[in-house]
Design a protein around this nucleic acid. Structure first.
Lengths: 245, 245
DNA sequence: CCTCTTATTCGCATTGTGCGAATAACTAAG
DNA sequence: CTTAGTTATTCGCACAATGCGAATAAGAGG
């Protein structure tokens, strides 16, 4: 920004009532479907609706630090990889005042996702239902995993449905040319698990031999030599993700 | 964001001094190289340095409306397609106060780019020099187009070098799976011009038959039947961009 | 040792792309 | 009108990436 604009137009009373927040999409998988951790609001406005964990950005706090703090305070998590998604600035996205929010995405492996849902902070997993294919975009719905279709979707607060939709869109777009997929897996995993992650995010079935070949050719997978236990048939090899180069 | 955080932590004196701005990368081509329109700052801080056009976001103004207003006020342009790039929130990116800025990207065809540089608003074209290949990322430098290497790069204000770098990165990433490239061309254009745009953005030479085939197969090009004039050899066919589907 | 089930590999067709060379087409000069 | 000059446009072929069905391998458990 240029300071002429500042000097010419800055009026504290006009600009002082704009607040900045961060909202974090805590995304993981639940029963092979993408899911996010949500909080049920218990005060108006939008009491009873479900919202992403979020919080105000302090004046001496970077956006990433604010998102990290939200993660720590509301989910007991720290050190997660955060990716900025988009900044939402509709005038009336929050009925109380003008609030602009920077949305972040954090990915959780299945066990950490389940653990965060159990740690008492009130976060509840909600399966994300994506009614569009590919990267078409559009609204998404969320549903409590134990509820069937008859319970209807969970109502989302503010514009959080848009934020969730964007998280899915971004993830789909980056999935096969980046290594984001591994962030949803434990340290050691099988190729089938990796394919399950991709299929859950993309919402489509993938061809097994082709997927395996593609992933191995990427050079990101390091065989551990160990095999998964607990199967009553041939156990698959366990791989580890190794940062490219 | 959730309101518990608001109630628990909101302190007007602590949060009131955070300001929100938009900065707009006005990107076009100049002599076959990517270039942006910049303003020379004439007041401290950072007087004499070059900055992106930007301005504060009004309390009753969406981010896009603010960016649009900046375009109108500072470049005399309106109705351009704007794409949100990223939100920059480093604590000390502006020495005066805490300012978070949402960066937008607007693309100008070559004639509109040149016209905007001439309309008296003080915008000057600056060629962007990208020292990295592909989507590696990293810093970029800008240079006045008429200056040679001996004049050195133009000094950029604040974190605007990062914003420009991100604009290039985003453009490179979207170039061959989206139709952004057409925004840098006039209404009717030849395949060679389209290839020149791609080569300028990507910073690499492309194979002509393959490029032509790829573009025609996309289904975005509609032959006009007319041919470019003014050549002293076989004139190429002019195409028009037609929105897919 | 045999069966069951999944892991892993093979073979082949199809598609997308790189690239050099050939052909077509228009302008301008003679 | 003919010819040279220059670029546009198309061809032909090699090669890499991928989809997909089928074959083969391997470990668990009886």
């Amino acid at each position: 920004m240029s300071e002429d604009a500042f000097l010419a137009t800055y009026d504290p009373s006009a600009y002082g009532r704009l607040a900045l927040t961060v909202d974090v999409v805590l995304l993981g998988l639940r029963d092979g479907r993408p899911a996010a951790l949500l909080l049920k609001r218990d005060e108006p406005p939008q009491a009873g609706l479900w919202a992403l964990p979020g919080g105000f950005v302090g004046v001496a706090e970077t956006l990433e630090a604010a998102a990290d703090r939200v993660l720590r305070e509301k989910a007991g998590l720290s050190g997660l990889h955060l990716e900025q998604l988009y900044t939402f600035g509709a005038i009336d996205r929050d009925p109380r005042m003008r609030i602009v929010s920077v949305a972040y995405l954090a990915l959780l492996p299945e066990t950490a996702f389940a653990a965060a849902a159990r740690n008492g902070a009130g976060l509840r997993p909600a399966v994300i239902e994506v009614p569009w294919a590919g990267e078409a975009g559009g609204p998404v719905a969320v549903r409590a995993p134990e509820d069937g279709q008859e319970r209807g979707p969970l109502p989302l607060a503010f514009d959080h449905a848009d934020i969730l939709a964007l998280a899915i869109l971004r993830l789909r777009g980056k999935l096969d040319y980046s290594s984001v997929g591994f962030a949803l897996l434990p340290d050691r995993f099988t190729l089938r698990q990796l394919q399950d992650v991709h299929e859950a995010i993309l919402g489509t079935a993938l061809n097994k031999p082709a997927f395996r070949r593609r992933m191995l050719d990427r050079g990101w997978l390091e065989p551990t030599g160990a095999r998964a236990a607990g199967t009553s048939f041939r156990p698959p090899e366990l791989y580890r993700f190794r940062q490219p180069r």
